[in-house]
Design a protein around this nucleic acid. Sequence first.
DNA 1: ACATTTATGTCAGCCATATTGACATATTTT
DNA 2: AAAATATGTCAATATGGCTGACATAAATGT
Lengths: 188, 188
Amino acid sequence: MADINVSAKIAAPGVAERPAGSAASAAGGPEPIWDIIELLFFAYRDFVGDPDEVLSKLGFGRAHHRVLHFVNRNPGMKVADLLDILNITKQSLGRVLKQLVDQGYVLQKEGAQDRRQRLLYATPKGEALSLKLAHLQTQRITRAFGELGPAAHEAARRFLTAMIDTDNREGVLRLIARADRMAKPEPK
Amino acid sequence: MADINVSAKIAAPGVAERPAGSAASAAGGPEPIWDIIELLFFAYRDFVGDPDEVLSKLGFGRAHHRVLHFVNRNPGMKVADLLDILNITKQSLGRVLKQLVDQGYVLQKEGAQDRRQRLLYATPKGEALSLKLAHLQTQRITRAFGELGPAAHEAARRFLTAMIDTDNREGVLRLIARADRMAKPEPK
DNA sequence: ACATTTATGTCAGCCATATTGACATATTTT
DNA sequence: AAAATATGTCAATATGGCTGACATAAATGT
C-alpha cells in the first residue's frame, strides 16, 4: 500500500494559495463534503486491496471476485441476474465466467423448469475461495467495528444503505436478505 | 443503473435453507459480515456512477476524475505525491495527466526551489469540472445524511476512517486536513 | 403449427487503464 | 565529477470493459 506522504512543501511560500472565500462556496453552490468523498475513496481502495493480493496470485482479478462472490452467495442464480447486479455486458461476463468454470470454481446447471437457463453454483473449491476472500474483508470490518463500539455495525449499515440509489435500494436489500437465508448449493 | 431483480425463483420451493449455525461458522472460522461487504460494493458503485456519466461525455474516465480531484484539492502537488496517492505507475498517470493538461484542465509549473519538479494545479476550467463532480457526490451524501439524522456525518467519518489501513490512516487524515486548510486559507 | 420472444453463448474488434522494463533529461545532492 | 532524484517517454503486454452481429435452444403467444 502506498504511503501518503505528500511533501509538506506543497504549501510552500510563494506558491499560490486560494483567495479567501473559496471559489466553491462563493460561486458554485453548497460546499462539497470533501471528507466523506475522500474517505470513501481510501476506505474502498484498502477494502478491495486485501482480496486483490490473493486473487492476483491465482491469475484472477477483481472481476472474478465479484462473479464468484455473488454466485456463492446466491446459489442457482441465472446468468441474467448476475448481469443485472454487476451491470456489465454478457460478453464481459462470459470471459470471466468461463475461466471460473474451466478452473473448477463455478459450475453451470441447466434449469429444471426452464431449460434455457444455465444456473450458477459455486463448487466447494469456489466456495472456499469466496469465503477466504470474504474473511479478509471481514477481518478489516471487524477491526473497524472493534475500534468504534457496539453501535458501529448498525450505523455503517444505515449509512451505506442510504448511499445506494433510492430506486435500487429495495432490490439490493432483498438480495442481501435472501442470500442470508439461502441454502447451500445442491446442484443435483 | 441496473435494477436488481433477481428472479424470485432462486429460492424455489423445495430448496433447502441453511441450518441455523451455517456452514461457514461450523467449518471455516468466524461468520463473514456479508451485509457490510455487499453494501460497500453497491454504495461505492452508485457513488462513482454519478461522476462517471458526466466524465464519459467529455471522453474522460474514472482515472481522470481521480487525478483532477486530488490536483484540485492539493494545488501545487508533485507528480510523485499523486503517484503515491493513486497507487499507480508514472506511465499510467502520464497518459491521463497529459490529456488533462492538453485539454486545459490541469497545468504544470516548474518548482521554485527544485526545478526538476512539475507542480500540478487545476486551471479554472479544471476546478469547475472537479467541483461539478464533487457536487454530484455531495448531493448523494447530503441526501443520505438527511435520511439518517444529524449524527450521521460523524458516524460515517468514523466508520470510513476505521476501514483504512492503520499505517495509512494518519497520512490520509493529514492529507484531508491540509487540503481543507488550503481551501480556506487562514489569514496569515 | 408457426412465429416470436427469451436466455444464453460466441466471434471479432475496439477502447481505457493498468502493468513492466528500458532509457533520456534536467537538476540537485554528495 | 559522480550519484541520486524527479520526471518523462517508448515499447510491449494484460485485464476488463464495450459494441455489433450472429447462432442456438427453448419457451411462449397466436
